[in-house]
């Protein structure tokens, strides 16, 4: 690794970069002063949103790195996490805390079925086939969800302890959001430790770099594929539980989030878990803060046209286009990976 210079590590700030950073800082300060309550709301909203994206992107990134398959059905697994929570809590009357454990496990089982039933046959094939097959699975899971739970949005009643809010003076923050942040951070840290600090993780990383060599050295990659796939599925399911408990669920969330999670993986750099975390937070934050910044700017400059409604939804894609044009491999991508 030491022989390869990484362009991003050279921290020389160009004049243009300095201006951009200066404007961003200025906008942040301005927004915080003009509308402190909204600012804190958006920061926390962006954080929660970004972390949920990271939870989905982690599994996506692992499967992509390890198996070379773009799992389009990963968003459907996230959605299933939410609907399983609905089934457990509202239909079967189980408590949220049980659902928090059981729903991700259930999603993990669905993951096993997908891996054994379909993806196993697609390893080492044209990557387009994996993308297409999982695209079909996503369609099937979406239709199945519509058939079982209906096409209208659903929601669950979060437990008493999580439905209250903290008063921060300028605004209030619901506990479920803070709980989401806490769970996501713990899970992300656990995955990091698993991959970076255990023998299991070491063998998985070896497999990502050179599967044939790892198998030659006696590593049973099959077992690792399944377990990593299930882990990725369960984490996405957990994301679904948290999202479902906080804001509810609908059939469209699968497509919406898989696309955003892809964007996160691509922006972070395919094959880099750390990149996914950074990109997730970046995109979550940008999605929530851009509208605020623009409306603040419009208010200060009295140029109303700057305040573009719904720009938040476009921000992830703009970020991706810019990042990929400037750094074709994403922020932390490796050379030659899936190119």
């Amino acid at each position: 690794m030491n022989a390869i210079p990484i362009p991003g590590t050279q921290r020389s700030i160009t004049p243009a970069g300095g201006i951009v950073w200066g404007v961003l800082v200025l906008l942040t300060v301005m927004s915080a002063i003009v509308r402190p309550g909204l600012f804190v709301d958006q920061v926390i909203g962006g954080l929660v949103y970004g972390l949920v994206l990271v939870l989905i992107a982690l599994g996506l990134s692992i499967v992509l790195g390890l198996l070379g398959i773009v799992n389009f059905a990963h968003g459907a697994l996230f959605m299933l996490g939410a609907y399983f929570t609905f089934q457990l809590m509202e239909v079967w009357g189980v408590s949220f805390w049980v659902a928090l454990i059981v729903a991700p496990l259930g999603v993990g089982l669905v993951g096993v079925a997908i891996e054994r039933g379909v993806l196993r046959h697609l390893y080492d094939k044209n990557p387009l086939n994996g993308l297409l097959a999982t695209f079909g699975i996503a369609l099937m899971l979406g239709e199945a969800t519509r058939a079982i739970w209906g096409g209208t949005p659903r929601s669950v009643v979060a437990p008493q302890i999580l439905s209250m809010s903290f008063d921060l003076g300028v605004t209030t923050v619901s506990r479920i959001r803070l709980f989401t942040v806490a769970v996501a951070v713990v899970v992300i840290a656990a995955v990091y430790l698993l991959i970076e600090r255990t023998d299991f993780g070491l063998s998985v990383r070896a497999g990502v770099l050179d599967r044939e060599m790892a198998e030659f050295l006696g590593v049973n990659m099959n077992v690792r594929f399944i377990s990593m796939f299930v882990l990725g599925a369960a984490i996405a399911g957990l994301g679904g539980v948290l999202r479902g408990a906080a804001v509810g669920m609908d059939v469209g969330m699968a497509n919406q989030f898989i696309i955003l999670a892809f964007v996160v993986v691509v922006v972070g750099g395919i094959g880099s878990l750390f990149g996914s975390v950074v990109a997730g937070l970046l995109i979550g934050g940008a999605s929530y803060l851009t509208p605020l910044y623009l409306s603040t700017l419009a208010e200060v400059t009295t140029l109303e046209f700057i305040n573009i409604p719904g720009i938040g939804g476009l921000v992830p894609y703009l970020v991706m286009i810019v990042v990929l044009l400037a750094r074709p491999r994403g922020l932390f991508g490796q050379e030659g990976f899936l190119e």
Partner: peptide, 9 residues
């Protein structure tokens, strides 16, 4: 770009 990047872009 590679297949995945092309699809995403």
């Amino acid at each position: 770009k590679g297949e995945i990047y092309f699809a995403m872009l």
